[in-house]
Design a protein around this nucleic acid. Structure first.
Length: 448
DNA sequence: TGTAAGCCTGCCGA
DNA sequence: ATCGGCAGGCTTA
């Protein structure tokens, strides 16, 4: 914690309706932020970022690692390798790229208040739930970290996911520094997770059956996919931070595979073990910048049934692939290109850990609103637009769903099959040799 | 083509 | 208090 490596507090003007870190950092997007003494801390790109917030500003402080610059080239972590060289003068230290990093990480180019207004105007349910949950953004996270974290998230709760990610960083990620006696490590790159011992070790650390998925995914990405494979899947309109900065010399990953699309990225991710539709959408939304990706988990499925009339009269209780696509398509048509952002607001409002907050602001009873919120939000539309409500009701009816999605579903399934057959055949044989015990869905499919 | 178990383990409500 | 169900699913049969 040498003071030499710690910057002074910086601040950037930001209203709570544009970003609320208290909610955004706890709603299950990133699992690495830790709150110590009312300040939030996390390692991003080789440095510890410390955050606190008031009504008008986001305050941030940077703690750089204390080691010699030569160690920065350590191959242990992709992320740490991105760290710029240690600067000598503290005055110029504030001229580093941390502001750009935060601007990118919090996706501040998206005007959140305007988006809330838009979502509320087109969706009375959103207008009803959102006032208690303003300032929730989708974090523009590192794609690899998002991939691993959400593989961990399957059949799991936020608390344990956080513990698992923490263990992954401590055991495989480079040490960066210590805050209040607590060590902080960066997230390990895929090459740090290679080796035959990794799966058993992760199991020992409590990862359960996800240990194999992570070990295999790390192996596939570092050995069988071209460099920059994940970056290629990004939304071109939402570049990764190191591409944005241009200083880290990202290899040309440009139009090698044509223009990236959300669907293409989603389907590509499905090839990886432990990655299904929901995890793929989480990575698309939070790691690849695809705002229209809408992860349908058990909570969102509950919301879709309770508030949007899905699943009525359906014989199957489980969320099948067709219904998954139908719910996502509905929310995309309702909320637009940033539908995943709106989804995260309702998702958070539905979390048990935020139950108190959900009941704190009641639109009907409530003048319990800050000025910033009242400016952005519309509280009356629950009864303001009966015509639109009727249209939505009609759209939500079962026959309409079946009709509109039979075509969509067919196309999706076909696409998936094609990609399976064309993309993986070549790689499979070698994968089996090097990646121990890799028995994926693709190999199974190809063998049968 | 669609559906239902099994999987690891900590948390949380009864 | 101990216990069983559940938790931001995926894979396999």
């Amino acid at each position: 914690m040498g003071a030499h490596n710690v910057s002074d507090w910086q601040k950037l003007p930001l209203s709570l309706s544009e970003l609320c870190i208290e909610t955004t950092l706890r709603c299950g997007q990133s699992f690495r932020w830790r709150k110590i003494n009312d300040e939030w801390h996390c390692v991003l790109r080789g440095r510890i970022i410390s955050l606190k917030q008031d009504a008008s500003h986001l305050h941030y402080k940077v703690t750089w690692p204390n080691y010699a610059p030569g160690l920065l080239t350590s191959p242990v972590s992709m992320s740490s390798a991105c760290a710029p060289t240690l600067k000598d003068n503290d005055s110029d230290a504030e001229k580093d790229d941390t502001y750009s990093l935060l601007h990118s990480y919090f996706a501040l180019s998206h005007p959140l208040s305007s988006l809330y207004t838009q979502w509320a105007a087109s969706d009375t349910n959103f207008a009803r739930r959102a006032p208690a949950f303003t300032g929730i953004r989708i974090l523009n996270q590192d794609a690899w970290e998002a991939l691993v974290a959400f593989i961990c998230s399957s059949n799991n709760n936020i608390s344990r996911i956080s513990q698992m990610v923490q263990k992954l960083c401590i055991h495989y990620g480079p040490y960066i520094g210590t805050i209040e006696g607590e060590p902080f490590h960066d997230f390990p790159g895929p090459e740090a997770l290679l080796g035959s011992h990794v799966e058993s070790h992760l199991r020992h650390l409590g990862f359960g059956y996800r240990a194999k998925y992570i070990a295999e995914t790390a192996c596939i990405l570092s050995k069988f996919k071209p460099a920059g494979w994940l970056l290629q899947l990004r939304n071109p309109a939402c570049p990764a931070f190191d591409v944005l900065g241009e200083k880290y010399g990202t290899p040309d990953i440009k139009a090698a595979a044509g223009p990236a699309t959300y669907r293409a990225a989603h389907d590509a991710l499905l090839e990886l073990p432990g990655v299904g539709p929901k995890v793929a959408d989480c990575v698309c939304l939070m790691g690849l910048g695809w705002g229209e990706a809408v992860p349908i988990d058990t909570h969102v499925w509950q919301i879709a049934q309770r508030d949007y009339s899905f699943g009525k009269g359906s014989k199957t209780k489980t969320l099948n692939k067709a219904m998954y696509d139908a719910v996502g398509d509905h929310f995309r048509s309702l909320w637009g290109t940033q539908a995943g952002w709106a989804q995260s607001v309702l998702f958070t409002a539905n979390l048990k850990s935020f139950a108190e907050q959900a009941s704190a602001v009641k639109p009907e009873s409530g003048v319990k609103v800050t000025k910033a919120e009242s400016a952005a939000m519309v509280y009356e539309p629950a009864s303001a637009d009966p015509e639109a409500a009727l249209v939505r009701f009609e759209e939500n009816r079962e026959p309409a769903i079946a009709k509109t999605n039979s075509r969509t579903r067919k196309r999706a399934v076909t696409t998936a099959k094609v990609s399976v057959e064309s993309n993986t055949k070549v790689a499979e044989t070698s994968q089996v040799e090097v990646c121990t015990r890799r028995r994926s869905k693709r190999i199974k499919a190809a063998a049968s």
